[in-house]
């Protein structure tokens, strides 16, 4: 029984059946999201991170075939087996809006292009709480301020296409945070933000997490971000979970070769020292006709071998 876990994912396998044959996006994925904890998911691009989070929200397209189980243990009610909920089950609605909320990877598709920003955020409040329109609007305004927008009253009257990438992203983060979910899923929430605002958002997510004692599933490629916000880390590769562990253990003492490879490919400190040699490599590679890319692709292949 999971007194300590908010969500447990057991043997989740997801296969997309398309007219071009089938693609297995997740193979037997199992991990838990403990209560009151920020879990980061890192891994190769295309390794199934977004598919995992979309499965928790039951947002996969019809072409997806799922097996395995995702169980949510809400604070005050009965456990919900997310994978076996019927499409019309009222619990699914309460799950999507109230218990779990999500910051999507694609900011534009999560916002309606034809409604004002303010209306969209206020709508998110109205959907979950019985408050007046004015109250919802002012709550929306204060949330947008918290995610670092300035001139909020004016910005709330603008349309999404008038916003920069980062501003859209912050609107979505505000919409997700505003209904105080028990589980907050963030799919690359800060990649479109500059580092100063990223820092502010990370602090905001972390402090809200501590205040609400909820759980956060945080997908990112930035290992610096992982180090700063996460308590636990899940490493994924090619639809599988390679390694799960405490943030310090994963970043300082990785067990799996792929994790080592990831840490080694990080731009920054370790590589800066070797920048000169790297540049020589590039030049040499160019002489061979784009050879360096191949050399690193070779690395990738080796990693792949490791995984098998």
């Amino acid at each position: 029984m999971s007194a300590n876990n908010l969500v447990s994912i057991n043997n989740l396998t997801v296969e997309f059946k398309t007219e071009l044959g089938s693609v297995t996006a997740l193979k037997d994925v199992s991990f838990d999201l403990p209560r009151n904890c920020i879990t980061a998911v890192v891994g190769e691009s295309g390794s199934g991170k977004s598919v995992t989070s979309n499965s928790i929200m039951r947002l996969l397209p019809d072409s997806a075939q799922t097996s395995g189980e995702i169980i949510l243990y809400p604070q005050k009610s009965e456990p919900i087996s997310i994978t076996s909920l019927a499409e019309k089950d009222p619990r699914l609605r309460s799950l999507r809006g109230g218990l779990v909320s999500m910051v999507f990877q694609e900011p534009m598709t999560a916002l309606s292009p034809v409604h004002r920003i303010g209306d969209q955020v206020a709508e998110a409040v109205l959907c979950h709480r019985e408050v007046s329109k004015e109250a919802a609007w002012s709550e929306a305004a204060s949330m947008l301020e918290q995610v670092g927008l300035t001139d909020v009253q004016q910005k709330m009257r603008m349309y999404p296409f008038e916003f920069s990438g980062g501003m859209r992203q912050r609107v979505i983060i505000a919409m997700a945070l505003i209904c105080h979910p028990q589980l907050l899923i963030c799919d690359e929430p800060t990649t479109a933000l500059d580092v100063t605002i990223q820092a502010e958002i990370l602090v905001l997510i972390k402090s809200l997490q501590q205040k609400l004692q909820n759980s956060v599933l945080f997908i990112t490629h930035d290992l610096g971000v992982v180090a700063q916000v996460a308590d636990r880390v899940v490493v994924m590769y090619d639809g599988q979970v390679l390694e799960v562990g405490d943030v310090k253990q994963i970043l300082k003492n990785p067990q799996h070769p792929y994790t080592c490879h990831l840490l080694a490919s990080m731009p920054g400190a370790e590589r800066r020292t070797t920048k000169e040699s790297k540049q020589k490599n590039w030049a040499a590679g160019a002489a061979l006709g784009g050879g360096t890319a191949l050399a690193t692709a070779e690395d990738g292949r080796q990693v792949r071998e490791f995984v098998r």
């Binding site: 190769e44 990877q105 490629h221 290992l223 990831l262 490919s265 690395d299 990738g300």
Partner: peptide, 9 residues
């Protein structure tokens, strides 16, 4: 939007 390994490639 790329993981650091693919990114460096």
């Amino acid at each position: 939007a790329l993981d650091v390994s693919v990114q460096s490639q």
